[in-house]
Simulated scan of single mutants.
Amino acid sequence: MARRKRLLVVLSYYHPYISGVSEYAKLLAEGLSADYDVTVLTGQHDPSLPVFERMHGVDVHRAPALLFLHKGYISPALARQYRALAAMSDVVNFHLPMLDVAWLARLTPRRVPVITTYQCDVQAIGGLVDRLAVAAVNHASRTCLRRSSRVVVLSRDYADGSEIVAAQPTHLVEGYAPIKDNGPGIAINRPINHEAPVIGFLGRFVAEKGIDVLIEAFAHVLAQRPDARLILAGDYKNVAGGSIYPQIEKRITGFGDRIELLGRIGDDELGAFYGQLDVFVLPSVNAYEAFGMVQVEAMFTGVPVVASDMRGVRVPVRLTGAGELAPPGDASALAAAILRCVDVRAGTSRQAIREAALGVFSNAAFVQRYAGMIEELAPETDESTR
């Protein structure tokens, strides 16, 4: 009798840590758990988290970190646990970037195929130690990609500009990303307000998100639309690699009640957040941002988007037509794109924006894409094996 195939998902950070990588892996693992036995191996980034728990049909193992470095860490415990879990698995799925993967890939049994999800490139943003850490991560990525049977990229647009992925003679699969559909939104029938637009951002307060550029752009918007508001949501305290909030706090508070700082919000609060917005902005400035799942999440609720015209990040707007693009790091151009977005779409149906996004980004197709790779790469299993 055939048994369910076993998938081991490995990444640096997992829920409750919030990032594009962790959310991608969580939605993937839970989506596949209906048909596969899915185990997640990750780091214990918060010592208060349990080393093992079962979450939404997925077994989650957390290994303590020995040393945090750049945005990652070194964990001998992770390697020990990986060796044991990989031996019991039919397929391993790594999510890069991940420093530890340099030796984890070598510990993978030869009979076990590897599907690697290449989430984004890494860039040095600090001094010598930071540059050395980035070099080590890039070496680890190359090592893992050479061991991989399939490499999933969020978009061909992003992969074509990546020195790490483009140099690997591997089977590339364009996977896009899984998106949480929070429904049509409480404001699906409300017209977009271009006279006093409510602008929204959701994400971690890290340098690559370009929040400082958004704040500068908001000043330009206020000069033309003095009743505009900006709502900033996302974790600005517990952020791997450090939060930029201390550097921009005074600038935020200087706007008084024109800028509202929400902090981290839960899944049950997302509907209310998006329901306030007339435009969502993703002002990313470097290659750490490879797609931007939140922008499609906003589209699903009927909110148009302004995103940076960067490889990968521009894909949702290009494919749906539900927004505008602006050059990264240019505050005046970003402000112009925000105003253009709300002006052009003042009479647009929010339902049309939602339907355009749903027509391109299907979670069912996303999960099936991975399931197809698992079935292709893993042999049939029976109760007698392992």
Rank of each mutant, 00 (worst) to 15 (best):
A352N: 01
L7Q: 02
D278Q: 10
D227P: 01
I74V: 15
P184D: 03
A25T: 02
Y82G: 06
L32T: 04
V58H: 10
P184F: 00
T348K: 11
P379W: 09
N363T: 06
I125Q: 08
R147P: 03
V344H: 13
P327T: 07
V10R: 10
D130G: 05
S89P: 02
E289A: 15
A357P: 01
V40A: 08
H56Q: 14
G372H: 08
G200E: 09
F68T: 14
D267F: 01
G242R: 09
A233L: 12
R311L: 09
Y176F: 15
Q247I: 05
E163I: 00
A136I: 04
E208D: 11
R340M: 06
Q44V: 03
T385C: 07
A356R: 00
Y370W: 09
R314I: 09
A102N: 10
D343L: 02
S141V: 00
A233C: 12
G20R: 13
E53L: 06
P178G: 04
L325M: 11
A223V: 00
K250R: 15
K209Y: 08
D46C: 08
E376Y: 01
P109G: 11
Q247M: 14
F52W: 14
L132Q: 03
D46S: 14
P304S: 10
F366N: 08
R225I: 05
Y14A: 03
G241W: 06
G329W: 02
N238V: 03
I199D: 09
S284D: 07
L282V: 13
S243P: 07
A87G: 05
L214H: 13
A217H: 07
V313L: 13
S75Q: 01
A378K: 12
R3A: 08
V165H: 00
A207D: 12
A196C: 12
P178I: 04
K5A: 11
V122T: 14
G321I: 00
I199K: 13
A177E: 14
A34K: 15
A333G: 02
Q351L: 11
A322L: 10
A87L: 09
N93W: 01
N286Q: 03
R156S: 08
A272R: 09
I188C: 06
N93F: 03
A298W: 13
I265W: 06
G271V: 07
A135M: 02
V313F: 12
Y245D: 04
L261P: 05
P191V: 06
A86S: 12
